[in-house]
Design a protein around this nucleic acid. Structure first.
Lengths: 219, 219, 219, 219
DNA sequence: AATGAATGAGCCTTCATTCAT
DNA sequence: AATGAATGAAGGCTCATTCAT
């Protein structure tokens, strides 16, 4: 693996950014593949670099350390998912409350599409690293923003949610899905599972609507 | 050299004597302390043995490997928690549905009492190891058994829960609590947080009662 | 933790560059020196790496494990010896039967020239590992091939040897030499010892010539 | 592997009582079994003690160290073999030279009867430990004594053997047999293999008888 | 005499990371 | 920018041996 020949003048026009972006993409793709194939145990920087077809040195040119790769991968996948969730919240397909909730749940369940092993591994890693908080931050912000937005739209019937309520609502839902992923439950992608998740969310929202009071009793 | 032993069937010593029992206890206590103080990163067999005041060899006399220590610790704590949960389910303090749910939630929130860091570390470790399933098994069994029992008692109004419903119910609740632990949310032990968890659980149970919708169970 | 890698198929780096080749050579040289100086007991990967002036990590970059170093050393020395033995068999110096046998014996006795301790250690290690068979394979193949060749040349007076005869012939000779090495007999390099080995081999060959007695070969 | 105790208090407990003798026997038997079943790798003092049904402490009451157990086992088996060889040499069954040689070879081949794996392991261990010399001493002595005896009996036709000749004669023969054991050759117990060993020994003896001269040229 | 819990030196191996080329 | 050989701290684990009971 000698340094890439740089045809004297040829590739000059291609912005460095592009090549760099490709390299990063290759590394993340390799990371996902390795995670999918061998789980966290097989996820070593050397392995990722090799699979990506770059040298270990190059990998470190773009990522400060091993964990950064993981985080970047998680972020990338999350972004995709968040776009979907946003669309769902805005009721672009089914504007009813249940319709939106269902679309949202579906978006989350199908995140990391086709790579349950990798998803599991990333989840584990994020949790194990204790970086869950960092990663959750954008999600929380998103939810908050979305919540505000929702409050103005057709879902305005909902009272503003307290900090604890937003937390419970989101974490309970995600927690159930995450558990299904980690435990590799066969019904993960089944309709009945989705139904129950939706039922949970809707029931909780309704309960809050009926009696929002308690939520103000923040300790 | 040192060819690997052939059958890994070799069991570890089972403490029969007083001294041995004390040693095991010391090791688990040391493990909890180290986890509490330095998290998973500080959790090395050498560190645990040293803190426990025994030699590394002794540790391996009682635990097959590093992970076994973690599992033992998790199991020990879980047993305590399960006893509490059982008591709650049986409605020993407040027999109303909400009373039971609340007692149960409280038991879980207060598990590993006084050692949130250790608890977090154990949770992370169990998840990272993918042994979550194994450890969840007894919990699941417990919940199932409890569910059956509940169905015969004063809570008989509840229809039998489908596999997905039991799963969603337990994982959503535990998921929210777990997230609060991992994210070190300040409101973890607050009344308002407990209120919301309870609200979630009760709302879900009521929704199921209204429409069991089990037709899709085996979807 | 650190779960074991899944497939142990991972090969070690194959030295392609000059520096790498030098490193490997340095490691093998260090291995021989350590073996020569302290025997098998002193032969630890750490010691070898240190003596070779490389880090332990580098050693593992080229050898899967400790034993691989030993095997590589054995192979390297054997190759040299086999070349000599081949030359002897072809009667390049003295074409008479006795001349060839004598040259062959001499080649074996002088293998690992100047490093009897290292030779002893390698022999012990190979035996202890039970890898003797593997290493013997090429030797056996060599002997077989040589035997065939001999049968066509001026030694054609010899009848084809049975499996047992080839075995007894080679192992008895090597066994006596090996014993002298292991027991550190003072007469190992003496003329009289060589004489006796030759006498043994020639006497046996003559006896076979007189009475091939192969009827029992497949007994 | 501590330094050997000196005469004064002797080594370890010398079994004077029946129970002690039984214990020692049990330990040696356990050692043989473990060796037979799992080879050298499984041969740990703890394993031997457990199999023998005694505590590790008791084992050390009778043997200075691990190696002592191995040596004792080897000695025990050798004694049995030597008795047989002695009988053979005295021509108790077939007084002809070939008859005696054959009986002797048979005795060696059948040593450690029924436990080829254990035998192999012991051989490997003895070799690896470099204790071969110690163990060979009694054999050498035996051979010398036997040689002298033979010289006076009906085998008196044989000239006195030189040091090298005795060595080559014994080691070549034993070497071939040992190789067959270590390589687990299927023909180990076959008649044709025995035939060839005998042929080798007899041919060598005859050659010496014809021209003993060279043997005096000891370097 | 026996027991067996305890010891701990030291081994092998991994892998994230660096840096000279 | 890329390369990849080299690094070495760190860690898991074994097992011969001791000694208080």
């Amino acid at each position: 693996m000698t340094a890439r020949r740089q045809p004297p003048e040829a590739k000059r026009r291609i912005p460095r950014q592009t090549r760099a972006a490709e390299t990063v993409a290759a590394i993340l793709e390799a990371a996902a593949q390795i995670l999918e194939a061998g789980g966290l145990a097989a996820f070593t920087t050397n392995a990722v670099a090799e699979r990506a077809g770059v040298s270990i040195g190059t990998l470190y040119q773009y990522f400060t350390d091993k964990n950064a790769v993981l985080l970047a991968l998680a972020r990338q996948e999350m972004e995709v998912a968040l776009v979907e969730v946003g669309r769902a919240l805005r009721g672009e397909s089914d504007p009813s409350i249940e319709g939106r909730v269902r679309a949202m749940v579906g978006a989350v369940i199908n995140a990391f599409r086709g790579r349950q092993r990798a998803r599991k591994a990333v989840v584990q890693a994020i949790l194990a690293r204790g970086s869950g908080i960092e990663l959750m931050a954008p999600v929380a912000a998103f939810i908050a923003a979305a919540g505000a937005e929702v409050g103005r739209g057709p879902l305005a019937v909902l009272p503003a949610l307290s900090r604890e309520q937003v937390f419970v609502m989101s974490r309970a839902t995600l927690g159930a899905i995450r558990a299904a992923v980690l435990e590799e439950q066969p019904f993960l992608r089944s309709r009945s599972f989705e139904d129950e998740i939706v039922r949970l969310a809707v029931a909780y929202l309704r309960a809050i609507t009926v009696d929002p009071g308690r939520s103000r009793t923040t300790a």
